[in-house]
Nucleic acid binder design. Sequence first.
DNA 1: GACTAAATTGGATTATAATGGATTATTATG
DNA 2: CATAATAATCCATTATAATCCAATTTAGTC
Lengths: 161, 161
Amino acid sequence: MLSFCGQDRCSVDANGRLKLSPKVVSDFTGKCGGQIVIHCLPEGAIAIYPEEIYLEMRRQETLPAAKAANSMVFRRSMRRFGAMSSPESISNQGRVTLPQAFREYAAVNPGSEVFVVGVEIGIEIWNTERWAEEIDRMNEHAREKGEREMAADLLPGDNIQ
Amino acid sequence: MLSFCGQDRCSVDANGRLKLSPKVVSDFTGKCGGQIVIHCLPEGAIAIYPEEIYLEMRRQETLPAAKAANSMVFRRSMRRFGAMSSPESISNQGRVTLPQAFREYAAVNPGSEVFVVGVEIGIEIWNTERWAEEIDRMNEHAREKGEREMAADLLPGDNIQ
DNA sequence: GACTAAATTGGATTATAATGGATTATTATG
DNA sequence: CATAATAATCCATTATAATCCAATTTAGTC
C-alpha cells in the first residue's frame, strides 16, 4: 500500500494545531507508533517525518562534540538541524501541534487553510500560496529538463532507445 | 528519542537567570544529572552543554603543558576555552544563572527576551535580533546551495534521479 | 572582628498558554 | 435524501512561564 501520498486541504486551529486525515494518521502509526519529528525546511514549508526516518537522515554525524569544539561550519549545521527540528507525537484525536517558530517561518497562521502534501517518506505542510508557487517551480523544472533531454536525443551518439 | 531540539522564546529575569522548559531540563538530567558547562561562543551566543559533552570537546588536547610552553596559538586556545567556560548546575526549579561576563558578550540582558535553541548536543542562548540574523544566514546558505543543485540537475550527465 | 548593606538565591504565587475532550457543522457516500 | 464519517470549533482543565517576596549569603566598612 502506498504511504504518504496525495494532497489535502485543511485548516490550522486557533492554537496552531492541525488535524490529520485518518489515512495520514494510519501511515504514521504504522511506521513509528505516532512518534514523529517536525522539521522546518529552507523551502519555507514544515515537514513531518516518522522518527525513524529523521534519525536515518541524521545518522551520519560521528563525534559531534569534538567537531563542534573546533568548527563554526559544523556548529552551524548542528544548529540548523537542532533548531529546525522538534520531536512530537500525534494525539489520539489525530492532531499535531506545530511549533510557533516553525509556523511563523512557514507562514502557517492559526486559523488559515494549508496544504498537507504527501512526500512518500512523510508529509509537508504548505502555506496555500507558497504551495501553488512550488507546483509551478517543480513543473517548470521538469519541463525544462524534458526539453533538454529531447534536444540531446537529436544528437548522434549512444541512443539507448 | 531526540534531545536538545527546537526553539523556545523565554525571558531572562532581573537577576540574569533563565528558566528552562521541562523538556530541556529532562534532556540535561538524562545526560549528566544536571551538571552543565556554560560556554561563550565566538558567534556571539551562550552555549550550555552537559558536562560530559564539554569534556569530550576538550579531551583531544594531550600534553597541554608541553604545548603551552612553546606555542602562543595553543596558549590562546587554552585561554579562550578556560575564560569562556564555566561549570554550573540547573536548580531544582529548572533555572540557570548565566555569568555576567557571558551575558554582556552575548547581549543577553536581564529582563529581556531571548531564544533558547537546541543544537543536538546542547542548547544555545541567543539575543533575539542576533538569532533572527543567524536564521537568515543559515537559510540563505541553504537556499543558495539548493539553487545550484537544481541548476546542476538540468545539465546532461549522470542524473541519479 | 562585628555590623550594615547589597546582592543573590530559592520558593511560592499569579497569570498565561497549551492540551484534551466533547459538541457541532460539514462533507461524502449509499 | 438519509446516514455515516470526518473536520472544525468550543470549552474546561492542566501545565507552564513569569513575577514577586523572603531568606540567606557575601562583601564592604567601621
